[in-house]
């Protein structure tokens, strides 16, 4: 029985644990409590057991929002990750241009989410927005306020514009960490550009790309502000993703029990995916060790 770790270190993380308990665990416990009860008047609760969960799991509205959510997440991941890698590969490796590119890439990430929604709301308006007016002038029938396809394209474009930079910065950091000796060896062997990417750059970027994938999955899976400001979940329910649907149930309809059950299901889905990614990442590290 040998001690391999200094357990006193746990006392150093105690403040963080207390903070997490206050801002994450207590609210989560409250949501579980709400999900099993019904409230008609503030402060008065009736026990309903698992009825809200059964209602949510059988609800076509929830299924539709879930399908839209997965579709949105899938689409933005297959666009943003390859695009981010491509941009990172095209960026200069050092010098003033590299710094300029990094600053430009960081700019969209600095803009608050509601401002991004407002910018794209105006930018894509068919009468006055540069994008909307321009597309209509080119002969495309585009109006994101009443066409579901246009609304989806706009929401996806907005997300790609806002978040591809994150993938770029992570991929760029991964590329910068590759030792120059690998490139020299590849040059001596006469490796093609594709071979360098496939056998040197991509394996070396694997960990940061998994992180990028995980971050983008979580962010896109809980997206709320940008599509809410841009389309309000419309036209109809075309861009009503899970979080928008949840807020509609909780705040719009004051159906706290149903919203809480939706929240728990939503949380469990995110938790499962995070665990899978975390397992993949740590497994990868074990393989490298």
């Amino acid at each position: 029985m040998t001690k391999t770790e200094n357990n006193r270190a746990w006392f150093l993380v105690l403040p963080v644990l207390l903070l997490v308990a206050m801002n994450a665990i207590l609210p989560l416990m409250t949501v579980v409590n709400y999900s099993l009860q019904e409230s008609f008047i503030a402060g008065f609760w009736d026990w309903v057991g698992t009825r809200h969960y059964q209602d949510v799991l059988a609800s076509e509205r929830f299924h539709a929002a879930l399908i839209r959510q997965f579709a949105f997440t899938f689409i933005i991941l297959i666009i943003e990750v390859p695009l981010g890698v491509a941009v990172a590969l095209a960026m200069p490796k050092k010098g003033a241009w590299a710094s300029l590119c990094l600053v430009l890439m960081a700019l969209p990430l600095l803009i608050p989410w509601n401002v991004v929604g407002a910018i794209w709301n105006i930018f894509a308006l068919p009468e006055i927005g540069l994008l909307g007016w321009g597309l209509n002038a080119l002969g495309f029938d585009y109006n994101y306020t009443n066409q579901p396809i246009s609304a989806w394209i706009t929401v996806i474009l907005m997300d790609v514009w806002h978040w591809t930079s994150l993938v770029v910065l992570l991929a760029y950091a991964g590329l910068q960490s590759i030792d120059e000796a690998y490139y020299r060896a590849a040059k001596i062997d006469g490796a093609s550009r594709w071979a360098v990417f496939r056998y040197i750059q991509l394996p070396k970027m694997k960990t940061v790309l998994i992180i990028a994938f995980l971050l983008r999955f979580i962010d896109s899976f809980m997206i709320y502000t940008e599509p809410f400001v841009l389309t309000g979940g419309g036209p109809g329910n075309a861009t009503t993703f899970l979080s928008i649907d949840l807020v509609k149930a909780a705040v719009g309809e004051f159906n706290l029990g149903i919203a809480a059950a939706m929240s728990i299901i939503y949380f469990l889905m995110t938790l499962l995916v995070c665990w899978l990614f975390f397992t993949l990442m740590t497994k990868d590290k074990e393989g490298q060790a």
Binding site: M29, T30, V32, N33, Y34, L36, G43, W45, W47
Partner: peptide, 14 residues
């Protein structure tokens, strides 16, 4: 802790 809407069932669960 009234705002957390506790019941004995959820308390036992946690």
């Amino acid at each position: 802790l009234g705002w957390m809407a506790w019941t004995w069932q959820t308390a036992v669960f946690f």
